[in-house]
């Protein structure tokens, strides 16, 4: 008394991952690394928008949500940058070229690349928060004429923790892009800023009345960054943040990522700040 089906591998079930091959393992900083992935199926490509994430599965260990940090114009080369923080990401660090990894996605909302057209763009990144913003930077640099002044404000722990440092230096010299970096602590060899990233908001050249801001980092950092942007005169309706919550499915069915009525995995992770402002200050929501 049962209907039985033979389910083809990966057929139309959003919980079933697609196999990808690790093409490159890139050590970024002491505790971060990037994985470059290619699909098993050469005809497959994962089209994504800046700010979206994938669920990455390591055989037998588990699955975690990781934002996509590569170039959306090159969907065949899927790049994720992550920090070693848990069991799965530590297992990922052990992956080598040729290893298989499971990918589900892309999921979630994206940075407002369309809405930002014709305006100044301020990207505020804290720590690993630069990774989900990098696709937005690639996008802007490929379509540089679409945007006004573009400023990246990036705060991290120490000079050794600066992500994508070579790339940032290259962009700074080759493109019309202002890059401000600040670190929490440094020795005297460091020639740059020391202080919190929020302080850079006051210094950066952009027109607050004509700016779209994209903010990504730890929640407390985002809170203070938004306050600084607002103080400078950027309306909260022009500020976007990327939220982090526990995610087990990525498709709004497991319940874990709820922030009151929001399923952060599908209604977010990128939110226009005024849409979630009341939820931002409420404790343990």
């Amino acid at each position: 008394m049962a209907t039985s089906i033979e389910r083809a591998v990966g057929a139309a079930d959003p919980m079933v991952p697609a196999p990808y091959v690790v093409e490159r393992f890139i050590r970024e900083t002491q505790d971060t690394f990037s994985l470059e992935l290619e699909p098993f199926d050469p005809s497959a490509e994962l089209r994504f928008l800046p700010g979206q994430f994938n669920m990455l599965y390591v055989f037998g260990v588990g699955e975690v949500p990781i934002s996509i940090s590569g170039d959306a114009a090159e969907p065949k080369k899927l790049v994720h940058t992550t920090r070693e923080v848990g069991v799965v990401t530590r297992a990922m660090r052990g992956l080598k070229p040729g290893h298989t990894i499971g990918v589900r996605g892309p999921f979630g909302t994206s940075w407002p690349m369309e809405a930002a057209k014709g305006h100044d763009v301020v990207l505020v990144a804290g720590g690993i928060g630069l990774a989900p913003l990098r696709p937005a930077l690639y996008w802007i640099l490929r379509n540089r004429d679409d945007y006004g002044k573009v400023v990246l404000l990036y705060g991290t722990r120490s000079p050794e923790d600066i992500l994508y440092s070579k790339e940032l230096a290259k962009w700074r010299s080759q493109f019309d892009l202002e890059v401000y970096i600040t670190v929490d602590r440094a020795t005297s060899e460091w020639r740059g800023n020391v202080g919190v990233v929020t302080k850079l908001v006051g210094r950066a050249p952009f027109d607050p009345a004509d700016t779209v801001a994209m903010v990504c980092g730890p929640e407390i950092m985002m809170r203070f960054a938004v306050e600084e942007l607002a103080r400078r005169g950027v309306p909260t309706s022009d500020i976007y943040v990327s939220m982090e919550r526990n995610m087990k499915c990525g498709i709004g069915l497991c319940g874990h990522c709820q922030l009151r009525g929001e399923f952060v995995c599908k209604d977010g992770p990128v939110y226009r700040f005024d849409a979630i402002e009341p939820l931002f200050m409420e404790r343990e929501l």
């Binding site: 008394m1 049962a2 089906i5 389910r7 591998v9 079930d13 196999p19 055989f59 040729g98 298989t100």
Partner: peptide, 23 residues
């Protein structure tokens, strides 16, 4: 059970699954 997979060296692949839907 959502799915099952089998490892061969560095690689793994998903196994086809029989799913019974009781009437």
């Amino acid at each position: 059970t959502l799915w099952q997979a089998e490892r061969e060296g560095a690689r793994f692949h998903l196994l086809p699954m029989r799913e019974d839907t009781p009437r």
